[in-house]
Structure formats: structure tokens, C-alpha cells
Write a protein that binds this DNA or RNA. Structure first.
Length: 572
RNA sequence: CGGAGCGUAGCUCAGCUUGGUAGAGCGCUGGUUUUGGGAACCAGAUGUCGGGUGUUCAAAUCGCCUCGCUCCGACCA
């Protein structure tokens, strides 16, 4: 491509709307433009990079044996009704009406469509296993679009679905996808790693998310340096708090006055009760019923774990007035001692705790010397606390760390939820009708592209891996007069590289050198070939890798040197 | 939806407190000179000051309403 014939509107300054580096660089490098919040147009260079990511995804999906299809983005709501997600996914579903006022939805994902397809087309276990995938635009009514392509209302996703007759082969299908994901992200030049993920209300057997470490990521990942444990914080477990809780009784429960104490910190500061010697009492409404949640004072509730334990997504914290009506006290003085008619769920970290302090269910009073198992009627023990950095891994005993990350992919063993709801059954070898065991596998393609930028940049711009760069090579011609020696050589090298199948752009703009260098570094072509009168007079052409030292070579060996460099720096 | 901030030229922003002719830099157009790291000079074009409404002789500026954008929280690839 001749630069003068394409459209790459670079910017010297970052638009005020962009906060994180990858968003700024997407805009400054002229890769995308915003239509409105959460909706972006891919410009020629950005679209080229996007297509390269898609191509890598396609190659690895094909290699994993998945079959590419294309499903409708516009979908009838009745299949969503059948799966139960018209209700449970209502927050993300876009609805549209046609001229006869009939309601339609825009697909945020395609379990319902693919399962309907399989229900109609497959009838024998002999046709399994089978996996389908597509690369397609998804629509989600995001509560808050963010960071450019990172969280958008409309985005490109690769979604894949596997169908198996038995558990063992379903696990094998899962493993094939899991392995393919590792290859995909590696080929995109990303350092992505799998972490255990919550399976939520679906309750499936396995789920892993593929995470790209980044401070701007929206997820927290708990991991150990030894590499034997990694999990989303929503799922992560540990051996428990580092500070032990008292285990020996201190005597009988005593009520004491704590006027104006509203928080754990107040109680610590004014009554010298460390947070780990307090019981935190949270009041939740679960499916319309009150539930008391007990945590150690220095622990935080992890709501996702709570949802998993309750097997419900319909819970929320109770309002102050609901709490007062039920317990006759406001938050700050709540406790579970003496509570008889409400379900009490306690976190495992409180097991055996003695000599604890908790609210008295009377404003301005607390109780001390509470022995949790002696004084509180606990209905359930479970793990609902958020893991903290420094705690020890349950399996290996190694210390855990926490860092932020971007979720670029998710593999999920679904089980039979959708196949049962939508009738995707086949006859097994005994002639018995059984639902297919499904898996679903997503990659945020547009998000992956931005994650690459978020991970690969320097002070001058993007550092594209050769595999996804809009162009692998940029020839910077410093004299663009058609008759000049410089331009003649630039055109010759350009033609030869193209003939070798290299993605090359020739900067033939009549611009000053500084502009060309800066633009090339901003967009971040992996290799720049600089041709100018000054160096040519010494018999030199410059090969400048974006992230490496300048290599000088003669005009004749430029093409072969460039090919060597690309070969040596190939990600694939 | 809750909390915070911001909307003035294509981009970055000043002007608003204390109402009185719409501004700068970059970019853009034409010209001259430059020509290996975002050039200099000359001449020029570009605005519903997000929109509506109120107050006022007079509103970018003050009040109210509204729309949009960004950030923090709940959702997720």
C-alpha cells in the first residue's frame, strides 16, 4: 500500500476522552474513531490489524476441528424465553421491534441459536462430537462502555460451541479449545494465562478465563509465583486469613455501650478491638427472604462466591429500613446472637472463633465474649470471603499475589442446561434420547486487539508484534520525487517485498522526515526501512526495527535482510 | 442506576469568578523559503460556545431543565 493512497489520520495529541494508553494509541495512530460511547469505526489500518487477529483465531479454531458458521445477530425472543435468559440476561439484551411491533433481540452471544440449530439437525450420537464457531458482531447493552474497545456496546467476538455425547469427550473438547486459546494469544504476541473462573449459577464443571496482565484490567487475579495456582478473585480460595482468630472462650457474653460506633474501624479505634476479633454481620435479601451473612471483621464479602453458594443470582443487600424492620437495629450494631428465624450463613474463617465482638441488634450496643458456635445458631458454613494478597495457597502452601488483568477469553463447560431447554438431544447407542453435553468458548476479538496495544507500546507509540501489525514493514522514502534515486529504490524494494508476500506500506507522502518517522513509530510498524539521499550516498539503506537497533545494509541486500529479520521476529 | 468531573474551531485548551465585538497553539487552504526527527514566515478559511429555557438593555459567562462524553462502583469477551 502507498501511504498516500490510504487513510491513516494520526494525531499529535491524545483526545481528552481517552484515559488508558491503548485507547489513546488506538485514536492517535488513526486505527479507530468513535461514533458514540461504546461504538467505534475501524479505519483502514485498524481494520487490517483486526483482520489479522481474526485470521489467527480462525486458523487455530480450524486446527482444533471446529467448523466455521455464521449465525444471525437478530434473534427471535422465544428461544431466549426457552433458555430462561430473556429474564436472566435482560440487563444486556438489546430489544428491537419490527414494523408489526413484534419484539426481537440482538444477540449478545449465541447459545440459543446454535442449540436450536443442533436440535433440528443432529439426531444421532454418531454425529458427535462436533464443534461450531463464528466470528461475529455481538451486541450488549453494557451498563458502562469503557476504555474504547475494551468494553463496548457492539464488539466482535469469536464464539464456539461444542456438543458431545459423554462427559469424557466433552472434557476432551474443552481441552482442545483450552489449548487452542493458549496458541491464539501467543500468536497474537500476548502474554495471556488461564485462570480458574467462577461458573456462576450454571454450576458447570470447569471454566477458565484467559487473562492479560494489565493495571488497567477490570479483573483481579489471584496467583502464586510458582505458577501452580491462578484464579479470578471471584473464585479464588486460600488457607484463610493470616491473623488467627481467638479460639478460646473468654467467658460469658456481655453487652456494652458503643454509642455512635458505626463501623469496624470505629470499634477498633475506640474500644481497642482488632478487626479480626469482630464479626461483621451483613443482611441480604435472597429470593425475597432475609439472610444474615457473617464474616470476620477484617474480611470482605465476595458476592460472586455468595452467588455460587446460594445457586441464585437474585440477591441484594437489604436496605436500612428493611434491616431495621427485621432486626430493630441499624447497620453498625447488627449481630446474629439470639437470631432464631433467619437463615444465618457464616464464612469458614469464623470457624471456632471465640471471644468475638459483634453488634447487639440494639443501636449503640455491642456484645463481647461471643463464641460463634456456642452463641450463634449457624445454618451454613461456606467460603464467601475475598482472598487477600499474602495468604497461602490451599494446594501448594505458596503465598498468593493479586494483580489486575484483562479478560480476553473464556472457556466454559456448560453441561446440558441449553441442550435440555432447547431440545438438543440425540439417540445414544442404546436408542435412548440424551441431551448433548455442551461447552462454550468466547474470545473478545476487538478487546484482544486492544489488549495487544495495552501490553506492547513505548513512549513513541505502539510496538506491534509482526503477527498482527497493520503492515509488517514501512518503507520511509525521504525523497518522493518519482525520478529520484531514493524513490526509485524505494519502489523497487516495495515491489520485491510485496512479491515475497510481505505486508508493506510505502510512505510516499511529500512530508518532512520528522513527520514520517514519528508517524511510523506511533503506528508502530515492526520494521522500518529508511531510504534517504544522505545514507544512500554512503551506499546504505537503514533497517530500523521498532524495538531494536538500526541495521545498515546495502541497497541490494535490503530485501533479503528484511526477510531475515521478519523470519527471526515471527511470532508464529 | 448511585457518586465525581467535563462539553467553546478537526485536536489540545484559554475565556466564565466580576455578563458587554469569539480567542490561542496544533491541524487545514494558498504562497515564499526550507528539506534526515512532528520547520519558518506571509496571507486565509473554519464556531447553533452541546441543546432548550429563564433572568437581563445585553448571556460562552448567572439560574433551571435536558442531552452527550469521561472516570469510580454493579455487568462481562
Amino acid at each position: 500500500m502507498r501511504w498516500s493512497q490510504t487513510f491513516i489520520p494520526t494525531m499529535k495529541e491524545s483526545p481528552a476522552e481517552a484515559e488508558i494508553i491503548s485507547h489513546k494509541l488506538l485514536l492517535r495512530a488513526g486505527l479507530v474513531r468513535k461514533l458514540t460511547g461504546g461504538l467505534y469505526t475501524f479505519l483502514p489500518a485498524g481494520f487490517r490489524a483486526l483482520k489479522k487477529v481474526e485470521q489467527i483465531v480462525r486458523e487455530e479454531m480450524d486446527r482444533a476441528g471446529a467448523l466455521e458458521v455464521l449465525m444471525p445477530a437478530l434473534q427471535p425472543p422465544d428461544i431466549w424465553e426457552k433458555s430462561g435468559r430473556l429474564e436472566s440476561a435482560q440487563d444486556v439484551l438489546f430489544h428491537v421491534k419490527d414494523r408489526s411491533k413484534k419484539n426481537w433481540v440482538l444477540g449478545p452471544t449465541h447459545e440459543e441459536v446454535i442449540t436450536t440449530l443442533v436440535a433440528g439437525e443432529l439426531s444421532s450420537y454418531r454425529q458427535l462430537p462436533v464443534s461450531f464457531y463464528q466470528v461475529q458482531t455481538k451486541f450488549r447493552d453494557e451498563i458502562r462502555p469503557r476504555f474504547g474497545l475494551m468494553r463496548a456496546k457492539e464488539f466482535i467476538m469469536k464464539d464456539a460451541y461444542s456438543f458431545d455425547i459423554e462427559d469424557e469427550s466433552a472434557n476432551a473438547s474443552y481441552k482442545r479449545m483450552y489449548d487452542a486459546y493458549g496458541r491464539i494469544f501467543a500468536r497474537c504476541g500476548l502474554q495471556a494465562f488461564p485462570v480458574q473462573a467462577d461458573t456462576g449459577v450454571m454450576g458447570g464443571a470447569h471454566s477458565h478465563e484467559f487473562m492479560v496482565p494489565a493495571d488497567t484490567g477490570e479483573n483481579e487475579v489471584v496467583y502464586s509465583d510458582s505458577g501452580d495456582y491462578a484464579a479470578n478473585i471471584e473464585k479464588a480460595t486460600s488457607q484463610g486469613p493470616l491473623k488467627r482468630t481467638l479460639q478460646e472462650s473468654c467467658g460469658d457474653v456481655e453487652k456494652f455501650e458503643t454509642t455512635n460506633v458505626k463501623t469496624i474501624e470505629d470499634l477498633s479505634a475506640r474500644f481497642d478491638v482488632p478487626a479480626e476479633h469482630q464479626i461483621k454481620t451483613l443482611v441480604y435479601m435472597v429470593d425475597g427472604k432475609f439472610v444474615l451473612l457473617l464474616l470476620r471483621g477484617d474480611d470482605q464479602l465476595e458476592e460472586t462466591k455468595l452467588g455460587s453458594f446460594l445457586r441464585s443470582a437474585s440477591f441484594r443487600s437489604a436496605t436500612d429500613s428493611e434491616i431495621h424492620e427485621q432486626l430493630r437495629a441499624y447497620p453498625g450494631s447488627l449481630g446474629a446472637v439470639g437470631v432464631e428465624d433467619i437463615r444465618v450463613v457464616a464464612d469458614n474463617a469464623l470457624k471456632g472463633a471465640a471471644g468475638m465482638v459483634t453488634g447487639a441488634n440494639q443501636d449503640g450496643y455491642h456484645l463481647r465474649n461471643v463464641d460463634i458456635e456456642r452463641d450463634i445458631r449457624i445454618n451454613d458454613w461456606c467460603d464467601i470471603r475475598k482472598v487477600k494478597a499474602g495468604e497461602l495457597c490451599l494446594e501448594s502452601g505458596n503465598p498468593l499475589k493479586i494483580r489486575r488483568a484483562i479478560e480476553v477469553g473464556h472457556v466454559f463447560k456448560l453441561g446440558t442446561k441449553y441442550s435440555e431447554a432447547l431440545g438438543a438431544t440425540v439417540l445414544d447407542e442404546n436408542g435412548k434420547s440424551v441431551p448433548c453435553i455442551m461447552g462454550c468458548y468466547g474470545i473478545g476479538v476487538t478487546r484482544t486487539l486492544q489488549a495487544v496495544i495495552e501490553q506492547c507500546f513505548d513512549e513513541n507509540g505502539i510496538n506491534w508484534p509482526t503477527s498482527v501489525a497493520p503492515y509488517q514493514v514501512c518503507i520511509t522514502a525521504l525523497d518522493v520525487e518519482m525520478e529520484s534515486e531514493v524513490m526509485k529504490l524505494a519502489l523497487k524494494i516495495y515491489d520485491e517485498l510485496q512479491a515475497e508476500g510481505v505486508d508493506v506500506i510505502l510512505d510516499d507522502r511529500p512530508a518532512r522526515p520528522g513527520i514520517k518517522f514519528k508517524d511510523s513509530e506511533l503506528i508502530g510498524f515492526p520494521l522500518r526501512i529508511g531510504i534517504g539521499e544522505r545514507s544512500l550516498a554512503k551506499g546504505n539503506v537503514e533497517l530500523k526495527p521498532k524495538t531494536g537497533e538500526m541495521i545498515l545494509c546495502s541497497p541490494d541486500e535490503t530485501v533479503s535482510k528484511a526477510l531475515d529479520w521478519l523470519e527471526a521476529n515471527s511470532v508464529n
